[in-house]
């Protein structure tokens, strides 16, 4: 227990942890603040004004249409060719209709908590995952490269217990940061919805769904923190995790995309990690195989492949497990020189 508390203290004392936490808080606060300015509460007066504007636009459009038809008729009477300029039948078939002028188009943007907050959960998870990745990698990477890990092992010569305790301290910290900031993030957007947008239809079911989205966000943040920690421990340097992240991104998002494109592999995006990240937050992603379509034979319903969040759990879970097992195996077997 003393080691766990020590590692929590060590992590909290680290400059990179403090700096990144401040940047994370400022970044999230900045997004929420900027967003609160871009959203406007739709009062009855604003809605009525939008309706008046739409009516005005409709009447103006009818006037313009009537003038155009009259001009066409006059031109036709002068024996001029009108079809190219005014369309067939002098454009009489294109009379504006009231439903073409939706008052919504004249409304300012209003944040809808129920419909849009899940997207902001993904934004939040992305930011905190980046924090977890850098802090996780540097926490153990710097310990290795500065000799801190060796010093610690001279005090606690139980390698797996030391590495495991360090990781537990990291994940506990990341979990704490995620939960606390997540609560503030939710509160901030609920307040934006309440006072600068709308929170209608936010039922218990919606909150349950938001809770599940939040749990998935916590899961991905913890997984990324653990993977970064394991990679840095495996390479005994922070740069190992950062390098691996760049390599995975380059291979997955560029290399595989090019390869599946060249080889015309159906549903190529199922081999790309970002598809699974998307499915994790969106619950599912539908992939289409347009290459299977033969448009010459008419309309085509392309073949579909559904990637679900359960598939994502399998991919990320397996990836994390492999890296973690490798890191702990290396810790147990490799000499510390």
């Amino acid at each position: 227990m003393s080691l766990f508390v020590t590692e929590l203290r060590r992590l909290a004392k680290r400059r990179v942890t403090r700096l990144l936490l401040v940047l994370l808080v400022l970044g999230l606060a900045g997004v929420a603040t900027a967003f609160s300015f871009s959203s406007h509460k739709l009062s009855k007066e604003v809605v009525a004004a939008a309706q008046v504007e739409a009516d005005h636009q409709y009447r103006q459009a009818v006037k313009d249409w009537e003038r155009t038809v009259a001009d066409c008729d006059a031109a036709k009477a002068r024996g001029e060719a009108t079809e190219e300029r005014f369309g067939p039948n002098c454009g009489r078939d294109w009379q504006p209709q009231p439903e073409m002028f939706d008052p919504k188009w004249n409304l300012p943007y209003q944040f809808d908590f129920r419909a849009e907050f899940p997207t902001f959960i993904a934004v939040f998870a992305g930011a905190v995952a980046l924090f977890a990745f850098i802090v996780g990698a540097s926490f153990v990477g710097a310990e290795w490269s500065t000799g801190g890990m060796m010093n610690l092992l001279l005090w606690r010569p139980k390698r797996l217990a030391v590495l495991g305790t360090k990781m537990a301290a990291l994940l506990t910290t990341v979990l704490g940061v995620t939960v606390v900031l997540g609560a503030f993030w939710t509160l901030a957007f609920w307040l934006i919805g309440r006072y600068r947008g709308t929170t209608v239809k936010v039922t218990a079911g919606v909150w349950r769904s938001i809770g599940l989205d939040g749990l998935r966000a916590v899961g991905i943040v913890l997984a990324i923190g653990a993977i970064a920690f394991a990679l840095a421990s495996l390479g005994r340097h922070t740069a190992m995790a950062l390098g691996a992240a760049v390599a995975v991104f380059a291979i997955s998002e560029i290399g595989i995309r090019i390869a599946v494109g060249v080889l015309s592999i159906p549903f190529g995006d199922r081999y790309v990690l970002s598809t699974y990240a998307q499915a994790w937050f969106m619950k599912q992603v539908k992939l289409f195989d347009y290459d299977a379509c033969q448009f010459a034979k008419g309309q085509c319903e392309p073949a579909e492949l559904l990637v679900t969040w359960q598939d994502s759990a399998l991919v990320f879970g397996l990836g994390a497990a492999v890296v973690l097992v490798a890191a702990f195996w290396a810790m147990r077997k490799r000499d510390i020189a």
Binding site: S2, R10, E143, T146, G147, G148, L152
Partner: peptide, 18 residues
């Protein structure tokens, strides 16, 4: 070899706590 951004007191304090 020690973590360069910690003070001597912090370094020893963490070891003592561990």
């Amino acid at each position: 070899q020690f973590f360069p951004h910690f003070s001597a007191r912090d370094t020893l304090g963490l070891l003592a706590q561990a």
